[in-house]
Write a protein that binds this DNA or RNA. Structure first.
Lengths: 243, 243
DNA sequence: AAGTGGTCTAGACCACATT
DNA sequence: ATGTGGTCTAGACCACTTA
């Protein structure tokens, strides 16, 4: 028996193209070679290549224009669009906030987070508290977030090298331990501002905040990050489109 | 010039199959004829038919099993799963609440709703206030909702016939004015319970509630319903999966 | 062994954008 | 006129399920 898992050609092609995009071979906004050229490169038929392109299109990595070509989506992957995909201001403008890390440390994982990350009790996690600030107005705090990452993913080298907590976490995961966010689950509820949060968000202590708990999963559906975000619901909102 | 819009075969087939499912030809759980049989029925190639089936599969209307066949998804369409797709209890169990209409009437559309529904100022809408109750415990109120539907969609006949407000609205839209929810946008924020809501949800007046504003669009991307739901965030939550 | 969906190919023609 | 993506076909072979 062959233990190697079967992987369809179109999936392999899809992954390869995505890697080449991430590697910078085709920066956002540029056009890919046409279908026949790419199919030739990979030695597959046009149909197979097209299936890969369609998947990347539905995942918003590519945009296709009949008669023009296939464009790399004009999204700043480096600035972790992913976690902010759903947060916008009251004018429905999507936000791409900058990051400010308040502090980070290694701690035993809190129980409720351990369950979500599928960790043993008290297993060590890297914990960080950060602010996300408006791009155009850097004293306006959009949200306060707590992040938990299992320490087991970091090599000793990585931990030593890490003199500051990386801003662009999703890019960091990829370069450091080859993990890409494949899916995520967000649970929304309400939390009340503690003294510190009230200060940063410029609201009264005890004010109701919109709470977003996000668990991120890699390609193998293993949870590798938990993120708790709190936003002022009077300035920002959470928006979902369902098709 | 031909003003008729071009519609690909696979889309026509897709819509036809969906209609036949809705019409009850293939009840949930049953298996469709195989690809070749269906392709023959429609007089299209297997590839074209497969494209239709794949679209319906990704829309969760069908489930396909290699070697077995194509099954109609086991979802109770009649009970409007759609609007509750994202609400679950604290054990992550999805909810399918029953409905109780408190009252309904024809009113001039409030301005903020008129904008979303693309109506003229003061245009008449049918407004309803309803409770959604736990299926297994009918005195437990999951949420309170306000619904606004443009009156122009209703024929005089429809309005006369309507002695009670229909529970299964999405099914009603389809049978009465042939509109099916094609997409919806949900905006989440926070609201505070007024006296009436507090009573129903069994919370204190002024308690922070999770507010969900949903605008529903038909196949032509015309808004045709606005729905404002308020839930107790300590008992229920809103959950999104992102791929 | 027979039947189903899953993958892959090769080629035709159409619709749209650019030159 | 040319090049791009979009649609559609026909047929081959593979992987999985059931009998």
């Amino acid at each position: 028996m062959n233990p190697v898992r079967f992987k369809p050609l179109y999936q392999q092609v899809e992954e390869s193209i995505l890697e080449r995009i991430y590697a910078g071979e085709w920066p956002p906004g540029t056009f890919l070679p046409n279908e026949f050229a790419l199919a030739d490169q990979y030695g597959v038929s046009q149909g197979t290549l097209r299936k890969a392109l369609e998947a990347l299109t539905s995942a918003k990595h590519l945009v296709r224009f009949q008669g023009k070509g296939t464009q790399v989506a004009d999204i700043d992957h480096e600035n972790s669009i992913f976690p902010f995909y759903h947060i916008c201001d009251m004018e429905n403008k999507r936000l791409f906030p900058t990051t400010q890390t308040l502090h980070y440390e290694s701690i035993p994982c809190p129980e409720e987070v351990a369950i979500l990350l599928n960790l043993k009790k008290q297993e060590e996690v890297i914990y960080a508290k950060r602010l996300r600030l408006l791009e155009e107005k850097s004293d306006e705090v959009v949200l306060v977030e707590d992040i938990y990452i299992p320490k087991k993913f970091f090599s000793k080298e990585e931990l030593q090298k890490m003199t500051v907590f990386p801003d662009r976490l999703y890019a960091y995961y990829m370069t450091s331990f080859g993990k890409r966010v494949n899916s995520a689950v967000e649970e929304l509820s309400i939390a009340f501002a503690d003294k510190e949060e009230a200060k940063y968000l410029n609201v009264k202590e005890g004010q109701a905040l919109l709470l977003i708990n996000r668990t991120s999963y890699d390609a193998d559906n293993e949870a590798f990050e938990f993120r708790r975000s709190k936003i002022n619901p009077h300035k920002y909102k959470y928006k979902v489109t369902i098709d």
